[in-house]
Design a protein around this nucleic acid. Structure first.
Length: 465
DNA sequence: GGCCCTTTGAAGCTA
DNA sequence: TAGCTTCAAAGGGCC
């Protein structure tokens, strides 16, 4: 795996685990200077619970651990907030690791400078033209990856829900205790912890602010306008029938993982460069580019993702990914069947290549994903025939599009990673992969010169499937 | 309107 | 513990 595996890395799939991050427990010793206080955290949780669940606190009630954490904030926050923020130079302006990254605007990393005292963004924050006009979230705010348009729907002002201020007024126990969670005067901003700094972003306050005043984007209604209306109503003090209230419980979304953060950042770039629109095709490209990233580059995103998870944990101690299970319907049965018959399934590929399953495979292969070699153009697994005797099809061919991307993005990493020693498991896109005329004809990029190849191979990029 | 596609990673579940 | 499933984002396509 290219990611972060250093030689003997075992779990190459979870490369973030391979980072030399300290154990959470070890991180308790240091508290970021700006760490918000125990009280803030407790209030924050309280407000979340109050707003989403009504006056009661079912989440906490159902989760003694949550209560304990709230009551033991020292443990909570110290436990959650890693000192590697300091280690990585993130506690203050980081001249290195995040410099030049779109994530220079990452709330966690911004600490003192990301949001200037007057609320404006750090100049560094505009480096990457990620544009998400339809979502009132600042595009450079990775800690705001969650869909937030739910909070700005309907006739409300796209900037601030009409009743926001009222709600703040009517929530004395929260507003008074969480001075930093609401539109703050410049002085207040400085009191907010780095991790909470995004709360004060003008855009956040404008459109994605949670009506609780805790605008964490992970909190969204289940879906749609109607639910949002319910959600708004839910914020009002009037008691509602239990069943109804339950149905209106907002959804707390999963924190984004490293790749998701990367996608969020790079999507617009890929779209702009290759005039692609379909997310499926874009994601294929991004997936390949992800593998082409250097260890250090990926480390940024793993770090961000880790902080994202930590913040998420702090905000929603009782939340579990399981809470959202069943909220999406998938054709899992069909996929499962495909996986079983897939000649590139991890198990089969491992066996065919006769490689050590602990060290010789990339993360995807060690899970359910296809063998990376299969995908990367070796064409097929070692055997041309699958276990059931049927012929193995040629691998999916987004490669031509990816090849084009490699031209569009003159990064030598795609063709020749800077550090090849750490990507033995995920070789970059084969340079020999031809760019089809179709692939390039749909792209304005002059660097994309077609090579003779099957025209149909571009279908992935040009049409999506 | 809502699911599908497509990617990787994290977390939960199951045997 | 290994393997599988689900969800996270995105937005065009499709039914």
């Amino acid at each position: 795996m290219p990611q972060l595996g250093s030689g003997g890395g075992d779990d190459l799939g979870a490369t973030d685990e391979m980072l030399a991050f300290k154990d959470e427990g070890e991180q308790e010793e240091k508290i970021p200077e700006n760490a918000f206080t125990e009280r803030d955290l407790a209030d924050l949780k309280s407000s979340l619970v109050n707003e989403s669940e009504g006056s009661g606190s079912p989440a906490a009630a159902a989760d003694p651990e949550a209560i304990r954490r709230v009551q033991d904030p020292q443990r909570v926050y110290q436990e959650k907030l890693p000192d590697h923020m300091e280690d990585a130079g993130m506690k203050h302006q980081d001249p290195g690791m995040y410099k030049g990254s779109a994530y220079s605007g990452y709330p966690f990393l911004m600490l003192s400078d990301p949001y200037l005292p007057n609320g404006s963004m750090s100049p560094l924050s505009n480096k990457v033209p990620v544009v998400q006009p339809s979502h009132g979230v600042h595009p450079l705010t990775p800690l705001i990856p969650y869909s937030n348009d739910h909070f700005s729907h309907g006739s409300h002002s796209p900037h601030l829900p009409a009743d926001i201020s009222q709600k703040q007024v009517h929530r004395p126990s929260q507003t008074s205790d969480i001075p930093g969670f609401y539109p703050l005067p410049p002085a207040g901003v400085g009191q907010i912890t780095p991790s909470m700094g995004w709360f004060t972003h003008p855009l956040m306050l404008g459109s994605s602010m949670h009506t609780t005043g805790i605008p964490h984007p992970a909190i969204v209604p289940h879906s749609g306008k109607q639910e949002m209306e319910h959600y708004d109503r839910n914020m009002k003090p009037q008691p509602e029938p239990k069943r109804e209230k339950e149905a209106k419980k907002p959804t707390i979304k999963k924190p984004l993982n490293a790749f998701m953060l990367y996608m969020k950042e790079m999507r617009a770039k890929v779209i702009a460069e290759c005039t692609l629109k379909e997310s499926a095709a874009i994601n294929q490209i991004l997936g390949r580019r992800w593998h082409a990233l250097s260890r250090e580059e990926q480390a940024k995103y793993y770090e961000l993702a880790r902080k994202e998870r930590q913040l998420h944990m702090q905000l929603y101690p009782g939340w579990s990914a399981r809470d959202n299970y069943g909220k999406k319907k998938r054709r899992t049965r069909e996929k499962q069947q495909d996986s079983n018959s897939d000649p590139a399934s991890p198990k089969k590929c491992r066996a065919r290549f006769g490689l050590n399953q602990q060290t010789d495979w990339c993360g995807p292969c060690r899970r359910k994903k296809k063998c990376i070699r299969y995908l990367q153009g070796e064409g097929r697994c070692a055997s041309p025939v699958s276990s059931d005797g049927s012929a193995i099809d040629s691998p999916p061919s987004p490669l031509d599009a990816l090849q084009c991307i490699s031209s569009a993005f003159p990064s030598d990493k795609l063709a020749a990673p800077a550090d090849s020693t750490h990507r033995e498991h995920t070789d970059p896109l084969p340079v020999s992969a031809p760019i089809t005329a179709a692939a390039c004809s749909s792209r304005p990029n002059p660097g994309c010169s077609p090579a003779p190849a099957e025209p149909s191979a571009c279908s992935v990029a040009s049409t999506g499937t």
